[in-house]
C-alpha cells in the first residue's frame, strides 16, 4: 500500500540553507522519521538527523514538523491529509549544526547550573522510607526525556537569544521543582533561586511548554505555577520563610 508523499526538508548549515523538495515512498503505519530515513538511504546519503529509540523514549528526534515542535518518531503520517506536503525543519531556538540537527548544548549548560540533589548526611543507603504518593510528584517530572521541545517552543528564548543567559527554561523549572518536592532532598531555597538565578520570573505562564511535551508533563500547572506561588509566599511572608528553613516539607501542594 505504498504511496508517494511530498516533503520539504530543510538542508543547510550554520551559514546558509533552505527547503528542498523531495518525493518519497510511504507505507501504512509509518511515522515521519521512517520517511526521513528512507530519503537518507535512497536520495540524500548525507542528510543529518538525530534519533535513537524510535519509540518516544530518548528524546533525540526533536524537530519542527509543519512548524510545530515534535518528535519525528511519534508523528504518524496518517495524522496528515493524503496530499499534504510535510515540511520538516530544525528546532528554531537552537543554532543549526547541519540539516535537522541543532546544537542543544545550551540545555546541558543549564543542567550544570542547577544545584544537585543533596542526600541527608545521616541517612544510610537502604534506609530511606518514602510513601508512593510522596515520590509521585517528583516522578512526574522525572519522566522528562530531555527532548527540549518545551525549550524550543518557549517564547522567552525562541526568538530572543539575549534571554538565554538568564533563563533556564521549562525543562529546568521542572528539574528544580522535582528536587524541591523530593521527599529527601536537603537543599534549601530552591524556589527562591529558581526565581532569582534561573529566570522563573520571566515566564508568563503561556503554557506552550505543556502543550508540546510528549511526556504530557504538566509543566506549568504542576511545577511553574506552584513554584511561583510559593516564591511569593516565601518572599513576603517572613513567618513561612522561617518555617521553610526548619522543615523541608513545606513542599508544593
Amino acid at each position: 500500500m505504498a504511496r508517494n508523499i511530498n516533503m520539504r526538508i530543510w538542508r543547510g548549515n550554520v551559514t546558509d540553507g533552505g527547503l528542498e523538495n523531495v518525493v518519497v515512498e510511504a507505507n501504512e503505519g509509518e511515522v515521519v522519521l521512517d520517511v526521513i530515513h528512507r530519503v537518507q538511504a535512497t536520495q540524500m546519503g548525507d542528510l543529518a538527523v538525530r534519533w535513537n529509540c524510535k519509540a518516544g523514549k530518548c528524546g533525540s528526534c526533536s524537530m519542527e514538523i509543519n512548524g510545530k515542535p515534535r518528535l519525528a518518531c511519534m508523528t504518524q503520517l496518517s495524522s496528515f491529509k493524503e496530499d499534504e506536503t510535510i515540511t520538516v525543519t530544525p528546532l528554531r531556538a537552537f543554532p543549526v549544526i547541519k540539516d535537522l540537527v541543532t546544537d542543544v548544548s545550551f540545555n546541558y549548560r543549564k543542567a550544570m547550573e542547577v544545584p544537585a540533589y543533596a542526600h541527608p548526611v545521616n541517612l544510610a543507603p537502604g534506609e530511606a522510607r518514602m510513601e508512593q504518593v510522596d515520590v509521585e510528584r517528583s516522578q512526574e517530572f522525572r519522566k522528562c526525556i530531555e527532548c527540549f521541545l518545551c525549550q524550543d517552543t518557549c517564547h522567552v528564548i525562541r526568538d530572543h537569544e539575549e534571554n538565554k543567559k538568564s533563563f533556564a527554561g521549562p525543562r529546568f523549572f521542572i528539574r528544580i521543582a522535582e528536587l524541591d518536592m523530593h521527599p529527601l532532598d536537603t537543599l534549601r531555597n530552591r524556589k527562591k533561586t529558581a526565581q532569582e538565578e534561573h529566570g522563573l520570573g520571566m515566564c508568563n505562564i503561556t503554557k506552550c511548554c505543556t502543550e508540546v511535551c510528549p511526556e504530557h508533563i504538566r509543566i506549568t500547572d504542576n511545577a511553574i505555577i506552584p513554584m511561583k506561588e510559593r516564591v511569593v509566599d516565601v518572599k513576603y511572608d517572613p513567618l513561612r520563610w522561617l518555617g521553610s528553613k526548619i522543615s523541608k516539607r513545606e513542599g508544593i501542594v
Binding site: 544537585a116 540533589y117 542526600h119 541517612l123 543507603p125 537502604g126 530511606a128 522510607r129 518514602m130 510513601e131 508512593q132 515520590v135 517528583s138 516522578q139 522525572r142 528536587l179 523530593h182 532532598d185
Partner: peptide
C-alpha cells in the same frame, strides 16, 4: 546488586515504593 540500587537512591533516584515505603 542490592547495594548498587540503594546507592542510586542516595544520588536522588526515586523508585516506586512498597506499602512500607521501601523500594518496590
Amino acid at each position: 546488586s542490592p547495594d548498587r540500587i540503594w546507592e542510586l537512591e542516595t544520588w536522588g533516584a526515586l523508585f516506586d515504593r512498597t506499602k512500607e515505603g521501601k523500594i518496590s
